[in-house]
Amino acid sequence: MKKTGLYIVIVGCGRLGAHLANRLSSEGHSVVAIDLSESAFPGLSADFSGFRIEGDATQTAVLREAKVHKADVLIATTHDDNVNLMVAQVAKKIFNTPKVLARVFDPRRETAYAQLGIRTICPTSVAAGLFFDAISEDE
């Protein structure tokens, strides 16, 4: 069953972060988007009904301002794997966020993240899988 009314914090408001924020907001969730630069926020649609916070999410004060301790989900989608890992770890260990997801570009890091209990999604692995599936279908 699809849950609604969740409090979701998205760190990094680039193409992926903004897309997620827009979609989750339109599905009735309360979304907080955090980005280092205010220039990232125009990626959010006019219908986005969440909050925007300009700040460095590697600082706990910024996460506290976003009320990560009350969040149901945190998604780390910055362009830096290390930042995503750090933010995800802080959310998991310090703020006890129940569900923490991170994007990781480097597939070799997936195992390391998994050992820390952080669920990751690697666009490289996902795309590679889809390519393999497409090749198999053609055969």
């Binding site: 009314g5 409090y7 309360s30 907080v32 969440g50 909050f51 916070i53 976003a66 009320k67 009350k70 969040a71």
Partner: peptide, 8 residues
């Protein structure tokens, strides 16, 4: 205080 959760 903003941002707030629906539960708050």
């Amino acid at each position: 205080e903003k941002p707030f959760t629906p539960t708050e």
